[in-house]
Write a protein that binds this DNA or RNA. Sequence first.
DNA 1: GTCTATAATGAGATAGAC
DNA 2: GTCTATCTCATTATAGAC
Lengths: 195, 195
Amino acid sequence: MARKPGSRSDITGPRIRAAARRLFARHGFAAVSMRQIAAEVGVQAGALYLYTPDKETMLVDLLKDHMDELIVAWDAAAPGGGPLERLQAFVRFHIAFNLDHADAVFLSYMELRNLGPENFAVIEGLRRDYENRLEAILTAGQGTGLFAVPDTKLATMAIIAMLNGVNTWYREGGRLSRAAVGDIYWDMVRKAVAA
Amino acid sequence: MARKPGSRSDITGPRIRAAARRLFARHGFAAVSMRQIAAEVGVQAGALYLYTPDKETMLVDLLKDHMDELIVAWDAAAPGGGPLERLQAFVRFHIAFNLDHADAVFLSYMELRNLGPENFAVIEGLRRDYENRLEAILTAGQGTGLFAVPDTKLATMAIIAMLNGVNTWYREGGRLSRAAVGDIYWDMVRKAVAA
DNA sequence: GTCTATAATGAGATAGAC
DNA sequence: GTCTATCTCATTATAGAC
């Protein structure tokens, strides 16, 4: 026997990526074998090497795609207006995007240590690009006297960490809707940076 | 040859735990082999099984000890006084303790997925015990009208996540001292929960 | 594009010597 | 309490058939 009837690389490729993302996030990069990924997709382990040169490249591609998508999505969603409106939009966007991409977000924070130095630098650079967009909002508000943050760099890190935390406890269908969570976090962020 | 001259279990035990904690935090539980841990300590892999029945037990013992130590340390450090004083103390304590136990903190958030359900429940229970101490402070302040948090549960999670974030960027000898970081985060937390 | 088969390596854990 | 040696099994990755 040879190739499976009906196999198509433009279908198998995305399915491999989705399975790898899910399994890496659930069990950790090192704990997941190529065999597990292949089994999840319904192919043999050797077939994965038609789509990636090795396991680490699979991971770094997932992370890079995720960070690219994040930045593109924010740049498309970011409103004009004053710092307060832009900050509110950022808070709501970040929570919503993270919940929609929980596995990728988790990976992008937890599995950086499995990357070689050059791949690590690429992902970290993309993350900084994204964080700089938030810091720019804080700096703008600081300039007009609207915000009073003791340190825009730390405030950026604090806000991102706080918002990322939502992913650790939020469950769909739980006590609070996504919109309600957005309201509550926006209230806390707004007050934290207020003059 | 047999046992090494001068070997002592009360020295080797702690060294094994320290090596495992460091290596698990750096590379991830699944990525670290028993041979690596043994090499770090200077014993053979087989010797590790004198101290632990298996690898997962090594991990869960590290996590349990860490959470116990955290709760004991806070209960010893927690001041009396009003909610504002207690909240300030909590912020500064949490940042300092986390920086002093960075590897264990990282493990306690990242490697829970490598635990069986019963071990997982134990660690999660301890974490909730700790978080409840913060929530009690917020509830007390809420009751006297000193704080105005829209949801004490979410505020608890938000504050912890924000403070935990310090560990991801803080470097000893960097731009800011620990005390300065404590000041800045306290400023943001104070405003975020203020009435 | 997927298969089977296999190479090369390393894993967790155990047995028994000293 | 640590050693060497070993069992058993899984791993990543490749080769070549179809």
